[in-house]
Simulated scan of single mutants.
Amino acid sequence: MQYRRQRTAALLFVLAGVAASAVVYPDLPREMATHWNASGDVDGTMSRTVGAFVLPAITALVVGVMLVAPSIDPRKDHYEAFRGVYEGFVAGTAGFLTYVHAITLAWNLGYEIPIGQALTPALAVLLYACGVLLERAEPNWFVGIRTPWTLSDDDVWRETNERGALAFKLAAVLALGGLLLPAYAIVFVLVPTLLAAGYTVAYSFLAYRRKEA
């Protein structure tokens, strides 16, 4: 079966999250910290029963949706051109969410990890992976820079997604600044990501207008 390794990796990440929660469950507090603000302070909690397994459940749901999406896409034939990269991205997303889950468990077991610094490299890798996926994605309804203008013209799609690939790779590099200035880790991740997203939307509009002129 094609892409068995990527799908197996995604499944193993889900199972690893469930297994980790099951092993440490008795040692977790009755009320688990599950959300932190930009300063790294806890500002959200859940009961142990929910908090211990909610992220593995979300990971399984995300993986399932991402694997099913190509089969229901009206342009599903276009996925074959980048299916390997797409399947790898699915596994990478599962790995990222499992990493976040591991940090959450560690914190609740008494390890006061600097959340911003711990998440920064993982977010940078995820942003870079988005860039790789964008530069390979062919026109479709689920993956890539999907605006009214890219979905209306395949040439605008390809041009915009190539630009988007560079923008998100640059955002990934800039995100690493959070390792040097942990107090501003969220800024180094969020601002370049928003700028990359805004740039690609604007570019798609301008590219479409230019072609139609």
Rank of each mutant, 00 (worst) to 15 (best):
M1E: 12
R4S: 12
R4V: 14
R5Q: 12
Q6H: 15
Q6D: 13
L11G: 08
A16G: 09
G17N: 06
G17M: 02
V18C: 03
V18E: 04
V24G: 04
Y25N: 01
Y25E: 01
D27H: 08
L28S: 09
P29W: 09
P29A: 13
M32H: 01
T34V: 14
W36V: 00
N37W: 15
A38R: 12
S39Q: 13
S39P: 00
D43H: 13
D43P: 08
M46P: 07
S47H: 11
R48F: 13
T49A: 12
T49N: 07
V54R: 04
L55Y: 07
A57S: 15
I58W: 12
T59M: 08
T59K: 05
A60M: 13
L61Q: 03
V63T: 09
G64M: 10
L67F: 07
V68R: 14
P70C: 08
P70F: 05
P70H: 02
S71R: 15
I72C: 15
P74T: 09
P74N: 13
R75C: 11
A81Y: 04
V85R: 10
E87G: 04
F89T: 13
V90R: 05
A91K: 07
G95S: 02
G95M: 06
G95T: 07
F96D: 09
L97P: 06
V100D: 00
V100T: 13
A102S: 10
A102T: 12
I103F: 14
L105F: 13
A106T: 06
A106W: 14
W107K: 01
N108Q: 04
L109W: 15
Y111L: 09
I113P: 06
G116Q: 14
G116C: 10
Q117W: 05
A118K: 15
A118G: 09
L119K: 11
P121K: 00
L123Y: 12
A124W: 05
V125I: 11
V125E: 02
Y128W: 14
G131I: 03
E135R: 15
R136G: 11
A137Y: 01
E138W: 04
E138P: 05
E138L: 02
W141M: 13
W141S: 09
G144Q: 00
I145K: 03
L151F: 06
L151D: 05
S152H: 08
S152Q: 12
D153S: 11
D153R: 03
D155L: 10
W157T: 03
E159K: 11
T160W: 11
N161T: 05
E162R: 12
A167R: 03
K169L: 06
L170P: 01
L170N: 00
A172D: 01
L174R: 06
G177E: 05
G177Y: 09
P182N: 03
P182L: 00
A183S: 10
Y184A: 13
Y184L: 12
Y184I: 03
I186N: 07
F188H: 04
L190F: 14
V191Q: 02
V191G: 03
V191A: 10
L194G: 09
L194Y: 07
A196T: 03
A197N: 04
G198V: 07
G198I: 11
Y199G: 01
Y199K: 02
V201P: 00
V201T: 06
A207I: 00
Y208I: 01
K211Y: 05
E212M: 10
A213V: 01
